[in-house]
């Protein structure tokens, strides 16, 4: 038989639970209409990421345009110039990698792609707006056999390094948890 103390405690628990449910349900209901600081850090972060992706795609668009026109030297010089304003930005490495591969500087291009993916996995993520998955998959599939056979013919540290980098990209493309 519970005494008065227990009964008061039980009553307090019930009241607190009702209050929690009431506040929590109110929180859930009004979720869509909330504005300002109450929108929560997750939403804030999602907005920031969208803004960042838009900014990158817009800022580096001139490089993409030059690359499309196959004006690779001009595109690379533009990359160099943008790097002064955005040092360390992995998007520059992706652009640099894609231009170098187009020009035939394969090992250097592979290294640039990998440098970008190491910093930002979005480039191999199908869900990301920065996604370059198809391009990187093609690079890996096209260059792996050639680098392997070059290495077999000539155990050259430059090829060895390129092969290791290609395996890294292959592993990132394969997915997994990391």
């Amino acid at each position: 038989m519970r005494d008065r103390f227990d009964k008061i405690c039980l009553l307090a628990i019930v009241v607190t639970l009702i209050a929690i449910v009431a506040f929590a349900s109110g929180f859930v209901r009004s979720d869509k209409n909330r504005v300002g600081d109450e929108r929560g850090p997750a939403v804030e972060r999602a907005i920031q990421e969208q803004v960042r992706a838009n900014f990158l795609l817009e800022t580096f668009e001139p490089v993409e345009q030059l690359k499309e026109k196959r004006e690779y030297a001009a595109a690379l010089l533009k990359v160099q110039e943008l790097e002064k304003s955005y040092p360390g930005e992995p998007h520059l490495q992706i652009l640099r990698g894609s231009i170098l591969v187009e020009q035939g500087a394969l090992t250097e291009g592979i290294a640039r792609y990998a440098a970008a993916v190491r910093v930002n996995g979005d480039y191999v993520d199908a869900n990301s707006r920065l996604n370059r998955r198809t391009e990187i998959t093609r690079l890996v599939e096209d260059s792996l056999p050639g680098i392997k056979s070059s290495l077999e013919a000539d155990p050259n540290p430059t090829y060895k390094k390129a092969l290791k980098t290609l395996y890294y990209l292959q592993s990132r493309l394969a997915g997994g948890c990391e």
């Binding site: 859930v28 979720d31 929108r39 929560g40 850090p41 997750a42 993520d125 869900n127 997994g176």
Partner: peptide, 17 residues
């Protein structure tokens, strides 16, 4: 289940899978 705004859910990367 409720997914309140203070809990983070990745929309890309391995956690989005």
């Amino acid at each position: 289940l409720v997914r309140p705004g203070f809990v983070y859910f990745s929309d890309r990367g391995s956690a989005a899978l």
